[in-house]
């Protein structure tokens, strides 16, 4: 961790920014209603960004627009990911480019076997990279290792995807998918919400084991609690669809102490 933060900091000092994601004046919304109202944000390799904000501030809209949810539309601005116009890509193309959205409410898919689904997703990525796809036996070795990493019982392999999982198991399953797919940029949308402290530690531990100098994470969270376990380089406060304040992790502590009320968008 320490090395990792240091290298991020060095990148900043030397001005060698390895830009991964560049959001410029993004406006976006849902069913014609603008919710994100001009967000600009740059995420470089090796960085962890936390986006905090009260309910309705546009946090989830931002995550969904980045992942390409069909019900959300970009109304202005640009998003560039690894040099590509992200908004032009379909959700599956974005995933294959290396974007991963950890869902706030992971979807239950009855009848789709969890392990089979993970293997399909893994193989889609392998195929994209021109690598050999894995048969169930070979994939099982990878899966066992990753399940251990996120502290998940192997019985969840043969269950239907998220069906009947507890809230904590669903979130762990998201981190498991992230571990299997090894994205370049993971956007974790309120992964900490609804978790008890043990589950939170397990999830945070999984996240910490997965970050390295070549990937980046955007943590979207309502609470400061997660940031005790996963240390962000930057904290941004979102309010009414705009980033009203950015700072380092001490900002998160201020928010915890004072709430969000002191931060409101500056009238234009």
């Amino acid at each position: 961790m320490e090395n990792f933060i240091l290298s991020g900091a060095l990148n900043q000092i030397n001005g060698r920014k390895d830009s991964m994601l560049e959001i410029k004046d993004l406006h976006a919304g849902f069913e014609g209603t603008e919710i994100v109202k001009g967000i600009s944000l740059t995420v470089n390799k090796g960085e962890i960004h936390a986006i905090m904000g009260p309910n309705g501030s546009g946090k989830s809209t931002l995550s969904k627009i980045l992942a390409g949810h069909p019900a959300y539309e970009a109304m202005g601005g640009t998003v560039t990911f690894m040099g590509k116009d992200l908004l032009e890509l379909s959700p599956d193309q974005r995933a294959l480019e290396g974007i991963f959205l950890g869902f706030q409410y992971p979807v239950e898919v009855p009848g789709v076997n969890n392990a089979e689904f993970l293997r399909m997703a893994y193989n889609a990525k392998m195929a994209r990279q021109g690598k050999e796809e894995l048969d169930p036996l070979d994939f099982d070795d990878i899966l066992d290792e990753k399940m251990k990493l996120v502290g998940m019982d192997s019985k969840y392999k043969d269950r239907s995807l998220n069906e009947g999982f507890s809230g904590g198991e669903k979130k762990k399953n998201e981190i498991l998918q992230m571990a299997v797919l090894q994205p370049k940029l993971a956007i974790l949308d309120e992964t900490d919400s609804g978790l008890d402290i043990d589950a939170l530690r397990v999830v945070a531990n999984g996240v910490n084991k997965l970050i390295n100098q070549d990937n980046a994470i955007i943590l979207i969270t309502h609470y400061q609690r997660l940031l005790e376990y996963v240390k962000p380089h930057y904290v941004h406060v979102l309010s009414k669809g705009e980033i009203v304040k950015s700072g380092d992790k001490s900002l998160a502590l201020d928010l915890e102490a004072q709430g969000y009320d002191w931060l409101t968008p500056v009238p234009k």
């Binding site: 959700p91 599956d92 979807v107 898919v109 009848g111 399909m120 889609a124």
Partner: peptide, 23 residues
């Protein structure tokens, strides 16, 4: 929502539809 969830993991629209229909 199920389709988007599967898409967001890299499964094409065709694969996701086929998987959900099978399920």
């Amino acid at each position: 929502e199920q389709l988007f969830y599967l898409n967001s993991r890299g499964l094409s629209q065709g694969m996701a539809k086929s998987l959900l229909t099978r399920s």
